[in-house]
Design a binder for these strands. Sequence first.
DNA 1: GCCGTTTTCGGCCCGACTGTTTTCAGTCG
Length: 574
Amino acid sequence: MKTNEEIAYIFEIISNILEIIGENPFKSRAYRNAAGTIRDMETDLEDLTAKQKLTEIKGVGKDLADKINEYITTGSLTYYDELKAKVPGEFLDLLSIRGIGTKFLSNMFVSHNIRSLKQLDNLLNSEKALGIRGLGNKKINELKTNIAHYKQNIGRINIGIALPLAELLVSEIKRLSPDSRPTIAGSVRRMKETVRNINLLCIKDGKIDITDGLSKLDIISSVSKKEESFAEFRTEKDIEFTLTYCVDSSYGSTLLYLTGSRKHNDKLNKIAADSGFLLNKNGLFRDGIRIAGSNESHIYRELGADYIQPELREDIEEIELSLSGRLPSTVELSDIRGDLHTHSTWSDGRSSVNQMIMAAIEMGYEYIAITDHSPSSKIANGLDIKRLMQKKKEIEEIDSSTDRIKVLMGAEVDIRKDGSLDYPDDILHELDLVIASVHSNFNMSNEDMTRRIIKALKNPLVHILGHPTGRLVGERRAYEVDMDAVIDTAYDLGKALEINSSYKRLDLKDTHVKKAIKKGVELVISTDAHNTNQLSNIRYGVATARRGFATKKDILNTVDVGKITTWLKELKPK
DNA sequence: GCCGTTTTCGGCCCGACTGTTTTCAGTCG
């Protein structure tokens, strides 16, 4: 893991602990602010430490600079260790439950001696709960519901955390044993939105003990199992990862087996058995003779099926489609030609318009839309009309000064409670691209929310509905909304629905994507990037689209710049 | 704990919403 991310993570935990033990809230905020800045920085903290320039970072003074220095030179931070000893990690994790914040946890911790989810559960289910200031029947019930939702996701890791970690581990194995062909398997390979652990596969190296080599890495905290063909580790963030060793001749069959899903494998095994084969992780056999095994696609082929990409291996008709040669060729990362939802320092982004554009050029994009927030999003520093027009001027100047990329002037406009938009129509008319999104009043009835969103879609100046269900993966459930009605309306009006690539959103999710393309609705895959690094999150959106069977032609931003500008203009009334 | 400066200490993102209250506190975006 990169040092910047490590330190940002540590500062965030410190910030939370300080609030819970009742320290000065502004001290806590200082750590949180520094964590945010450090996470988004492009310069390495190690460089800045060497040059003694840490205090030049905004939000880092002498004290925090010393702490960064200590961590970088010694690999640990005494202050952090001391604080962690005071508050159990399991208790801190409760912060991710909706409706629970630091004030509540602090009260539980300090005044009620609560230290775990179990103790909190017991308290909420006891008569004592109603006696606590701030807790009434409604609040208690809300907490119970949200805790139940939280319990379902305990131990699950977001794909956006798991995949980079898996990639890092693969590169470490490659470094230890260059010919071992390490690769990602399991639900990470299938790009499920959350996963329970990380599964890797490599070929056993006769000379080097890879398990031993990995156990010495900083990111590995322990080796829980070590066998001939298998090892299980825990990383420093307590994420479990397993490494399976195989031989060359069964590399494909083991990869197939480890990738899953179980349902996909079960069905495949049955199909094999029905045709007189035996399929297991050692290979595909007939009469005891190995027919295939070193390569996944050979196995599919021998079974009379086309190769099935990992994202589809969920037993969602992919096997049937493959057997009959009707498996769609899904959209690829390389098909994406531009990003239509990004933020800049004009609102709550961390990178300037120029930085975003340079990064988009580096990614090989033909176009990028800079779509900052509208005024209702106060906390996001949403643009009032005056600033919107200033930004428009800046965008137009930059756009006309470069022929390397088309820069579109857009906005992510709040859909207000009544379905009206956060800028008047004559202002929306000034923009190249309008995304309409819900950012407030999530607790409406299904009917009201559906009416609200459809009303916004019906505004002729809206091009795209942003993150259509408002969910946060593993954190916040989608708001109540009739997605079928939204999909129908979008289709009727020729509007696009967004697949938001932020791994915290993935919204639309895969099953909605499937529904939308069945109807024939235009989809866009966008990042909602708030800094240049996040532009690369596009791969999570692409994976979600692929899991929903989307092909290149279903995704609007796979078309070239000419077609995209035509689409934007034609949708807009003259 | 940081920042900016009235260079020694006060202020620190802000408003809506909700469920508690009986005038407000906590959470969220």
